[in-house]
Design a binder for these strands. Sequence first.
DNA 1: CAAAAATAGTTAATATTATTAACTATTAAT
DNA 2: ATTAATAGTTAATAATATTAACTATTTTTG
Lengths: 172, 172
Amino acid sequence: MIEKSIEESIVMSIFDLANQLKKIGDDVYQKVGLTTQQWLILLHLANNPNLPFFKREKHDKALMASELADSLNVTRANITNLISVLLDKGLIKQYEDELDRRKKRLILTKEGIALVNRTQPSRLGVIKYLTEGFNEEEKKTFLLFLEACMSKLINEDEKLKSFHKLLVDAED
Amino acid sequence: MIEKSIEESIVMSIFDLANQLKKIGDDVYQKVGLTTQQWLILLHLANNPNLPFFKREKHDKALMASELADSLNVTRANITNLISVLLDKGLIKQYEDELDRRKKRLILTKEGIALVNRTQPSRLGVIKYLTEGFNEEEKKTFLLFLEACMSKLINEDEKLKSFHKLLVDAED
DNA sequence: CAAAAATAGTTAATATTATTAACTATTAAT
DNA sequence: ATTAATAGTTAATAATATTAACTATTTTTG
């Protein structure tokens, strides 16, 4: 019998909520012929300041594929596929970095910008609705909690590996 | 230029955090030959009281596939596939409901129970580590926030559809 | 009560999303 | 100058998911 614990409840709820939000997003973005991942890339190229990626590090130059891979936590090979779809749709374009010819910088086309703007109202509608009923102070505290959890996961990798070992050892 | 907003930051952070946690879970469960989805099914069959599903509704009888589909927010067809893997691995078993012969009830085998118990330490390790540094009061508030968001998404479907309309209308 | 509707589960075909491994090209480090 | 590392791509494949059509039951309702 597994015990009730507030910590595990939190983790499960985060999963559940993210899952549910993703489904809602899928519904919206399907209408404009995009998947959630493709749309996330557009949001990155639109320099959405609310993306954790932009809070973690500053970016003055246009993003490249490997940075997107980093932020979305997927492989570069996967990003290549996603990008080629967006290129075909004419929503983004690529140009080669002049200083480092390995790099390709990605930017939104006029059509890409228009699409991002067009989807803003329904996206913000859902977001505002979700968090209405809480005051500014509560929302701020909530965000800090999320960010604190996140930085623990990102900065202390060795610690996490030690938990994995608990499992490996049990195998013997 | 998209504006900074605490509400959008919250939603983005939830996505990011869930994503990161899923990756960590994947690493752990890969070691025992399971995927995250399969492992989530095991947690359901172990009646983990921290799953949002069990907080939303009581279940005295063993779960069936359609209830899992509900909780994981996927189709029944998908659950059929996941279950057949777990059956092949001998981690779960099925029996027919005597009162309603359409239904099949799912339970863990002895091996399934052993696996859940074996993965508990590393799972709880990550979870406790993640939330350490916050006091009980803060954790409680955080969980309430998550649950409040969740119930909004679940109970007020028509409201969400009205946001979708903002997009459809803009298409014309 | 009989017909229609709903529920539970499955199967087949397919789309999406992702991974790994091997590769080219370029730049940075020793 | 050779070796490492970085950026991106390609090909093969795995995992995850969906839709649509189907069977078998049970429930609803006219």
